[in-house]
């Protein structure tokens, strides 16, 4: 045992470091752990452990050591510490991590998607839609990740589906609108015809442009008509609102509205506009209900007009 006087302290430290690394390489780290276990553990048939230094590299970083001299005392030892067992363990961890990053992103962004895109207002949240778009896995090979060059080209089927979904919702909206229109007109006409025939005389259930005639008319028949009219309107509008919210066709209709589109465009420049979008969507929904009421009132006006013209 002798120190070589010609070696500097720095050189000595470096050689010692390399010697320590060499003793951990090529599966020796695991064998050291197992030696300690074998000699000291009270449970002899303990299953063998594996060192963190001997974890299998998962990617292409695993390089062969070639014909490097593995003698720890040899000065030409630099190549040795590049073996997968020592420094590459870090790289392999990093590499596997990098491979997992896409998976991680998918998990992160996938967690942000609130629903299936058809749940009314939730499907209108642009961030949710964006997150959903990001979370779509690459088509086919899986190499086309959500963060690859063109994320929008990742899933044409998905976009086609979304397009069809919007069309379907619009169609359903129209169907329901027509059904309600039929019910409304039927109820209104029934209400009108009922009062027209029950009351019988031509003065009690008629409109007039002369105030003295209007004052002659008993109030009760008209009040009965309008009570029934209001009840029918309340029931119809409430049902329409309930169905519209439940089935989600309100949101489809409002998203196509030019006010909402204008707000969307405006918020690209002025992000604060985004907060008004929710209010606009809600107001547009109420506007649709108001339109129902106004439409029915118009019909009543027309019916009374016809009655007053034809009745005279």
């Amino acid at each position: 045992m002798s120190d070589s006087p010609s070696i500097s302290a720095e050189e000595r430290k470096r050689i010692l470091r390399e010697r320590r690394a060499a003793k951990m390489a090529k599966g020796n780290a695991t064998s050291r752990l197992n030696t300690i276990l074998t000699q000291g553990n009270s449970v002899k048939d303990v299953s063998s452990v594996k060192s963190v230094l001997d974890q299998e590299p998962t990617g292409a970083t695993a390089t062969t050591t070639g014909n490097h001299d593995l003698d720890p005392d040899h000065h030409d030892i630099e190549g040795f510490i590049n073996t997968p067992g020592i420094n590459a363990s870090n790289d392999s961890v990093a590499l596997s991590n990098s491979e997992d990053i896409d998976e991680m992103f998918k998990k992160i962004f996938g967690g942000q998607v609130p629903g299936n895109g058809t749940d009314g207002a939730g499907s209108e949240d642009p961030l949710a839609q964006m997150m959903k778009m990001f979370s779509q896995p690459g088509a086919g090979t899986g190499t086309n990740t959500p963060f690859s060059e063109d994320p929008f080209s990742a899933q044409p089927e998905e976009f086609k589906y979304q397009q069809q979904l919007v069309q379907y919702n619009t169609y359903r909206h129209q169907v329901w609108k027509f059904r309600f229109l039929a019910v409304r007109y039927f109820a209104l006409l029934a209400n009108f015809i009922y009062h027209f025939y029950i009351i019988g005389d031509s003065i009690s259930f008629a409109s007039s442009s002369h105030q003295f005639i209007r004052e002659l008319i008993p109030v009760e028949p008209a009040r009965s008509f309008f009570t029934l009219f209001s009840t029918i309107e309340v029931v119809i509008i409430a049902s329409y609102y309930f169905l519209g919210t439940k089935e989600g066709f309100f949101s489809t209709a409002t998203s196509n509205n030019f006010v909402v589109k204008l707000l969307d465009m405006g918020s690209m420049v002025l992000p604060q506009l985004q907060q008004f979008k929710t209010i606009a969507v809600r107001l547009l929904g109420y506007y649709e209900l108001l339109a129902v009421l106004l439409g029915d009132l118009s019909l009543v006006v027309v019916l009374f007009g016809l009655h007053s013209v034809l009745g005279n």
């Binding site: 470091r17 780290a29 050291r32 300690i36 000291g40 060192s51 963190v52 230094l53």
Partner: peptide, 22 residues
Amino acid sequence: FLSLYETERMIQELMSYNMDVN
């Protein structure tokens, strides 16, 4: 025993981080 075993494991973990233990 346990201390020795844990020490060896710690040294190996530190080496995997390329940290010097002497």
